[in-house]
Simulated scan of single mutants.
Amino acid sequence: MYEERPARLDGAVVWTLTPGAGSEPVPVLPDGCMDLLWRGCDGRLLVAGPDTVAYVPEGGAGRYAGIRFAPGDAPALLGVPASELRDRRVELGALWGEARARRLGERVAEAPDPATALEDLAVRRAADVPPPDPLLRAVVRRLHAGRPVAETAELAGLGARQLHRRSLDAFGYGPKTLARILRLQRALALVRAGLPYAEAAIGAGCADQAHLARETRALAGTTLSAYASAWAKRETPQPSGSSTTA
């Protein structure tokens, strides 16, 4: 079962995943975010970098806790440019040192609620690093609203090359890729809300349904119908003891 709640850090989300018997890994779709993860099977802390394609967890389903940071917020907190972690999962020890990461992982594992302990870790770390860049947050808001990249750069007072360079550090990829990912997330939210595919495509800013279908295949590795079907299974109440896959 997957659950989430707002974190004490602005824009972040705390989540937990406790799979049922026989459940399979759920693909993680690109969303412009980065996550700090605690893996229950071995108590290790990991970092999930920004994805450009769907990621399927290896080794089967397992118990996880995580904190998902808003796009652009994690690099300063973790101390590494997002582009270095694009499409990667790395152990926190590779970034902060093995001994320190091991101590932190043990602390999270021993806590009554690992998700809250992980959140506490992130809050303490955030107090020691610069706050999120308001300019980059404005970039995310405009791209999330479907504004063109050129207009977004102009309103931010940045040239195209400046915005691209800063986007690589903050988001892991350029602003055009981030805009595509955010547009796909808008479209899939509309699909989950029950809108026909053609209406979801136009509402999210795609040219038409075919455009949305291509983007879903390219970024999510699936079709619109398969995504909608998997989501419906997740949302349908199951008899006690059963599990769903997505």
Rank of each mutant, 00 (worst) to 15 (best):
D87F: 05
G205Y: 14
I202K: 13
A21E: 15
L184H: 13
S167V: 07
G146T: 15
E91T: 09
D42H: 12
D133K: 04
V47S: 09
D128M: 02
Q238P: 07
A179N: 06
C33D: 06
K233H: 12
E199A: 08
I181N: 09
S240C: 02
R107F: 04
D31W: 04
L168Y: 12
P237A: 03
A101D: 12
G159Y: 14
D35M: 00
R39V: 04
D169W: 09
A201D: 08
I67M: 12
Y55Q: 05
A207C: 04
M34G: 11
A145F: 02
G49A: 06
G40D: 07
A145E: 15
L182G: 14
A213M: 02
Y227F: 08
R125M: 04
R234K: 05
G60Y: 10
G43Y: 09
L143G: 14
G172C: 11
T177Q: 14
E119R: 13
S23V: 00
M1Q: 12
P114T: 03
L219G: 00
P112W: 12
P75K: 00
L121C: 00
R8N: 11
W96H: 01
T222E: 14
W96L: 08
V56S: 07
V129H: 14
A198N: 05
R186T: 11
A226C: 05
E91S: 00
S23E: 15
L168T: 04
A70Y: 15
R63Y: 15
T244S: 11
G203K: 12
T222V: 01
L85N: 08
A109S: 13
Y173G: 03
G203S: 05
G43I: 02
L178C: 07
P57R: 01
P114M: 09
L95N: 08
G60N: 10
W231L: 10
A156K: 13
A153H: 05
T16Q: 06
A61T: 03
